[in-house]
Structures are given as structure tokens and as C-alpha cells.
Simulated assay, not measured.
Amino acid sequence: MTVHDPVLAAAHRPAEKHARKPIADDAAMLRAAAELTRTLSTANPAIYWPDFLASALLGYAALAGAILLDNGALAAVSGVVAMLALYRAASFIHELTHMREGALPGFYAAWNLLVGIPLMIPSFMYEEVHTQHHARTRYGTANDPEYLPLALMKPWSLPLFIVVAALAPVGLILRFGVLTPLSLLIPPLRRAVRERYSALSINPAYRRRAPEGDFARRWAWQEAGACVFALALVGSVFLLGWKPLLVYMAVHSGMTVLNQLRTLVAHLWENEGEAMTVTAQYLDSVNVPPPSPFAAIWAPVGLRYHALHHLLPSVPYHALGQAHRRLIATLDTDSPYHRGNYRGMLPLVGKIARSTMAR
């Protein structure tokens, strides 16, 4: 989620730089990745639509249960189910940013209306932001909105990284329910909101450019919808009491913390600002393939193959597992591809934490 915290920004400045030997591109790995996956680039609507709709339906049904059930234990279980299901539904925002126009007619609008606006994370917050993270000359640099050298920062930066995410629902209500209407009346505030509070980024230095053309129109209706929802959510207290709002915020907070934990282990975060080769970007990223039993839960919709996704950003989530198996079976054991695969979340958190404590 968006992180604009001055304390975290201070931790962003590593005390010293260490010379690193540049990693050259591995031609065999890149060639195999391209050749073995040429037939896997088509998004399958028979997978996308049922997966997305079932996740959203289950999430909202469980959220209703968490609000309405009198039994505390059942309400808590229902809240956890709501959090996990809505987290999966929300994760489709990542697919939207890579999907070719017209690949899945209606999916863009459906996702925003059913998930993006009700969770106050409309897709404009990620569009034209995430693709910069994949730019060859931006990844891992100060111009990458989704990169911080977390492994090279102070140890206290990691818990702060998670705590900030827990406050996301409060921040989003303020962003859309307060700043959106105020910024329409105060032009200087509007510029600040657009530049600093309109991106799902983690780089405190990132500033967003003004939208143009069709994207500006999409931004406008999505922001208006999220504004109306945020105001209605707060206004619901006067009709329904505090419980629905607090349960919604608890579920949303849990979902965002889980996503932040996934973000924490999506990369090794060891780059100090230099441009990197594609192979270096891959090795700074993480796959958690089977048999890891829980990765499909905390890294859903193909996010468990994040390193592979950096090699093949156009391959849809449902084909990444097959692409991974083809590469594992084809590439020699000394290929860099094998070094991008890890066992699970906890070993990765430990690895990054140890790196921060060694600074």
C-alpha cells in the first residue's frame, strides 16, 4: 500500500554503499523463458471470471457473517475467511495492469465496481505505477515506485513497514472521504493528493504525474466512486452503529498487512539504486513454488511466482505454474533460474531481517 512516512523515509538512506559486481544477463535462461512460454500468453476468461467472482462473493458473504453473527468464535472465523477471500479478489489488480486491452471484455469495470471501489483501492492507484516497476532502467532505482532497499535499511524499518500497512483503511478513508472533496476546492491540495497519495507504492520519494486522455477519465469515475463509498461507509455509523464499520476496517487491515508481508518477501531488496540487468532483477526477486503449502494463500493469483513474473510479465497468472515447470525441467542445475526459488515466507523474512541487523 502507499507509504509516505517520514520515519520510514529516513530509514531509506543506507549508511554506506558497497561495491557490487554487476550481474550479466544469462542468455540461455532468457532465451528459454521466451521460447518455452510462447503458447502461454493468452488470458483464459473461463479461469479469470469464476476465480474472481467466487473470491469476491465468498469474501462479502463472510464479511456479512462477521458483522451479523452473535457467536464470537464463528464471527472471528468468518472475518478470517472474508479477509483471505477479499485479499485474493483484490490481488487481481495486478493482473489488470498487465492485461492487454480487450483481452477480457468487461473485467476491468467489473473488478473496479465489485472490489476496487468497495475496498477503496481503485485500479487507477496501480495503473501506470506498477509498469514502472518493470521498466528495465527503473527497477531497483530511486525512480521505482515499488522498491526500497529494505535489506540494507535499519532493523526497525521492517516492523514499521508492516505497521504502516495496518493503518491503510484509515488512510484510505481520509484519502477518498476527506482529501478528494477538499482537493476539488483547493487546487494546490489537489496537486499534492495526485502526486503523493494516488499510488499503491512503497517508495516515499515517488511523485505521480497528472493523468491524461482516457486514463484521466477512468481515474475520475473511479475516484468519484471511492469518494462516495468512503463517505457512505462513515455515514453508516449513524444508521447501523459502529460494528459494521469496525469489522470492515479490521478485515481490510488484515488483508493489507498480509499483502505487505507478501510484498516484504517478493524481493530480496538488496539493490542500492543502480540499474540492473534482467537476470539481476530476477535474482533480486522471489519464487515460492510448490511444495510450499501456504504460498497460494499469502501470494495468490500467481504472486508466488514473482521472480518468474519479472522474466515474463505478460504471462497470465494461471499459466505461471506451467511456465515454471517447463523452465525447471529444461534449464541446467547451474542456471540462475534455480537460485530464484525459495521454500516459504518465514525463511525469507529471516534472511532480510538478518541482512538489516548486519548493517
Rank of each mutant, 00 (worst) to 15 (best):
N143T: 09
M357T: 04
P291Y: 00
K21I: 15
T180K: 00
A295S: 10
R325S: 06
Y317E: 05
G273L: 12
I47P: 09
A34C: 08
A32L: 12
V7Y: 02
R88F: 03
V288P: 02
S78M: 08
T333N: 15
A24K: 15
L264E: 00
A216R: 12
D144L: 15
P300W: 07
S123V: 13
F92R: 02
L246S: 07
L119A: 04
V129H: 02
Y108S: 06
F176P: 00
A353L: 13
G225N: 03
L258Q: 06
G302I: 00
Y197C: 11
Y342D: 00
Y206L: 13
S78Q: 10
G79Y: 00
G273E: 09
P169G: 02
A165C: 13
G116E: 11
R38M: 05
S157D: 02
W111E: 00
E16I: 11
P145M: 11
R191Y: 13
A142L: 11
R31F: 07
L245C: 01
K154Q: 14
G106R: 04
T263V: 08
A230H: 06
A19P: 05
E16Y: 11
Y282D: 01
A61Y: 07
Q260K: 03
R13F: 06
G171W: 01
I121R: 10
I297A: 13
R207F: 10
M345W: 07
R218S: 06
P118L: 14
A296H: 13
S292D: 11
I117E: 00
G72D: 14
G72A: 11
Q260A: 01
L68A: 14
A280G: 13
T2H: 08
N271S: 15
E212F: 04
A216N: 05
L182D: 04
V265C: 14
L258H: 05
L312Y: 14
P50T: 05
A110W: 03
N203T: 07
V251F: 01
Y60L: 11
T256P: 00
T97A: 13
S201C: 09
P204H: 01
G235F: 10
R207N: 08
G177V: 00
G235C: 07
L68E: 14
F161W: 07
S41A: 11
P211L: 15
W49L: 06
E128A: 10
T37P: 03
Y317I: 03
L40M: 09
G116H: 02
T263Y: 03
N71W: 14
A216S: 05
D284E: 14
R326N: 12
P6Q: 02
A56L: 15
I202T: 13
S198W: 04
L167N: 12
R190N: 15
E270Y: 03
R138I: 06
P289F: 01
A90D: 12
T356W: 00
N44M: 09
R100S: 13
G254S: 14
R13Q: 04
R38N: 08
V315W: 04
A220Q: 06
L30P: 14
A61Q: 14
A43T: 12
S55T: 11
G344P: 10
K243L: 07
H324N: 12
L119C: 05
T277A: 08
